[in-house]
Design a protein around this nucleic acid. Structure first.
Length: 654
DNA sequence: GAGTTTGAAACT
DNA sequence: CAGTTTCAAACTC
């Protein structure tokens, strides 16, 4: 509450905070103060995945067993409750909308409450809420929400651009969570929008339309942006995918390494939002929103309103970045909405956003299951059989999860570790590659040459590293042997020239070219999912992954898609037991862009593979000078293992 | 859409 | 911990 940001924000608004009045029909503040996280294990690269679990904001309360039910119960008390048949109904957008509406109300009511407690001193502490991954959304979102609400209450046409600009200038998203938080703010704004949507969105849109004329892209109606973000939320959980963080915006390029702390310039925020929305909406909103017709209605107009400016902006950016930068095949397949793809994983990747598993025998209780592995419940789009990965089987899920984690504490951590240019292990040739991330464990490919998505490294949009045990690695993102992309042509000659390899080569060359072209403007690893040259993760981290985005899609993916999947409730005991293990790698581009952050992580390295290439146990805690090692400058970048609150306090913080 | 290939995960 | 099996995604046809 004493933070400069708060002071500043307060100074911006003439409206004084009002104490919340408990409303039994709404989620209590408490419910939102302890965001749940299925991922009790560390999220190495991002928190984007957590977005998928927005649904369970209220599930973080002490009783994990009734969260879903309570939500559903609550949802039934709302108007326009759609018919929902199965236990995954909570995943429906409508439900989420209602939930968000509740959140919004709650936020509005509790302007002066809890969130402030966690956002201590932003100037000194990484803007990572202490409540946990989702908590960041609440914390940051609430404050920003206040800003919005204050303005909203006073003005007919809130100056969101300036507000956001102010906020983004003040907030240093030093962590993926923070990034997520800001995005969540946008999402909450979206929820706000939706709350009003049925009543007056048309009116507002028209207002904006008339107002935005001279302002071009920056003047995009906030409602529209919010709605678009809703779309992102649904479909783009994984913002942090390898490489998706790039745009032509130099400022952002420099500042925003995925999952890294990120000073988000106001303009960047807008562009990012727009671009993300644009890109995503083009493929996702229009294609994948069948489940959210009510939203789609609003989106259509909003998007159409935006589209012109978006296209213009996009074109400009594209031109700036590079004339004719070839789009990576993987990206193409995602962004061009290839109709041929049987299963285009718009959100695939570590970040994995919208997982849709197809498990038949694993009951979705093993890591085979992408949903389970991603820490989310299976949802309707899944084609799984005998699925136990549903809220109604929470106990089983948690037990299984615990068991798996006992075997491998990082089993649920993002597979792609985002870091700076260099990998920690000295002598890692792979660190010389442009890839800015590595698979935490490395792949073991034998036949795919690490050129197909069978390869987790490739899938994660990262190069192979010394950790990999792959054979004949030709990973376009960086070879295991450390050969640079530039060397690939030569090595290709040296290598076998079988028909197979030739085929691979053509693909490789394409990617190599792309990388070369992009390397100047886009220093980070390209992601198969997002077009780096167009989309810069606003504040992201993950998936996760994404190519595949995981990482933005987060690796971890995540990135991205705000799927309506539930966030599994936290395994408290497990989480607590691993608090110290929670960490994430943060790439810092230039320390001048952000203040030093404290390094708490006891884990010096994330290597989970022995030098001999054999798979070994995941990293365990080691007391060492990890911080100094990781935090040391390296080519102008710093790799920081930043501890993250693995589990939020269950008590409201004031 | 069915069948095959692939490599991670799980098991022994 | 190496080898094998199981599994589901990725891929091909």
């Amino acid at each position: 509450m004493d933070s400069p940001v708060f002071n500043y924000i307060n100074s911006l608004s003439p409206i004084r905070p009002v104490r919340s009045i408990p409303n039994p029909n709404q989620f209590s503040s408490l419910n939102f103060t302890s965001p749940p996280s299925v991922f009790t294990s560390p999220h190495l690269t991002s928190s984007h995945k957590e977005s998928r679990f927005f649904k369970t904001h209220n599930s973080s309360s002490s009783d994990p067993t009734n969260s879903v039910e309570s939500q559903e119960d609550e949802s039934t008390s709302h108007e326009e409750v759609p018919a929902e048949g199965e236990d995954t109904k909570g995943l429906n957008i409508d439900d989420c909308m209602r939930e968000e509406a509740s959140v919004e109300t709650n936020l509005d009511d509790s302007v002066a409450s809890p969130c402030g407690g966690n956002t201590t001193d932003l100037s000194l502490v990484p803007y990572a809420p202490t409540r946990g991954e989702d908590g960041s959304c609440e914390d940051n979102g609430m404050e920003l929400q206040k800003m919005h609400d204050n303005v909203q209450g006073k003005t007919e046409t809130p100056d969101w651009e300036s507000l956001i600009a102010d906020a983004s200038e003040l907030l240093i998203f030093d962590s993926p969570d923070a990034s997520e938080a800001f995005r969540c703010f946008m999402m909450q704004r979206a929820s706000n929008s939706e709350a009003r949507f049925r009543n007056g969105v048309e009116k507002q849109t028209m207002q904006h339309d008339s107002n935005k004329e001279p302002e071009s892209a920056n003047a995009i109606p906030y409602e529209a942006v919010s709605l678009l973000h809703r779309g992102i939320r649904r479909r783009c959980l994984d913002f942090e995918m390898p490489g998706n963080k790039q745009t032509s915006s130099e400022n952002n390029t420099a500042a925003c390494e995925s999952s890294s702390r990120c000073v988000v310039p106001s303009i960047g925020l807008h562009l990012n939002a727009i671009l993300m929305s644009s890109k995503d909406c083009k493929t996702n909103v229009t294609q994948d929103y069948s489940c959210s017709a009510n939203i789609q209605v609003g989106l259509q107009r909003s998007i159409s309103t935006l589209q012109d400016s978006l296209d213009q902006t996009e074109n400009e950016i594209r031109e700036d970045a590079d004339q004719d930068v070839p789009v990576e095949p993987a990206l193409q397949e995602l962004n061009l909405s290839s109709p041929k793809k049987k299963r285009v994983k718009l959100d695939s990747g570590e970040g994995e956003s919208c997982k849709r598993c197809n498990c038949k025998k694993s009951k979705c209780l093993k890591l085979y299951c992408e949903c389970f592995a991603a820490g989310v419940y299976c949802i309707e789009p899944c084609s799984c059989i005998d699925c136990f990965n549903k809220p109604i089987h929470e106990d089983v899920v948690l037990a299984t999860r615990k068991q798996i984690e006992s075997r491998n504490p990082l089993a649920f951590a993002p597979k792609v570790i985002r870091n700076s240019d260099s990998v920690q292990e000295t002598g890692d040739d792979a660190s010389k590659t442009p890839a800015s991330a590595r698979h935490k464990r490395g792949c073991n490919c034998k036949k795919s040459n690490c050129l197909k998505k069978y390869c987790e490294c490739y899938q994660g949009g990262v190069g192979c590293s010394i950790n990999c045990r792959c054979e004949g690695c030709k990973n376009a993102f960086g070879r295991k042997d450390g050969s640079s992309i530039d060397m690939e042509a030569e090595q290709e000659e040296e290598n076998e020239t079988s028909e197979k390899s030739r085929t691979a080569k053509s693909q490789q060359n394409t990617e190599v070219l792309m990388r070369k072209d992009m390397s100047s403007a886009l220093p980070t690893t390209p992601t198969p999912i997002y077009r780096p040259e167009l989309v810069q993760l606003p504040f992201s981290s993950s998936k996760n992954r994404m190519p595949p985005p995981q990482s933005l899609l987060g690796g971890g993916s995540s990135s991205g898609i705000f799927n309506s999947q539930y966030l599994r409730k936290p395994d408290i005991s497990l989480s607590q037991s691993r608090i110290e293990k929670s960490f994430e790698t943060v790439a810092v581009d230039g320390a001048e862009q952000m203040p030093e952050i404290l390094i708490h992580s006891p884990i010096p390295n994330i290597k989970s593979v022995s030098p001999n290439g054999k798979r070994v146990s995941p990293p365990h805690m080691e007391s060492s000078s990890s911080g100094s090692i990781l935090g040391r400058r390296n080519g102008g970048r710093k790799l920081i293992l930043q501890s993250i609150p693995s589990f939020p306090s269950l008590t409201p913080q004031h």
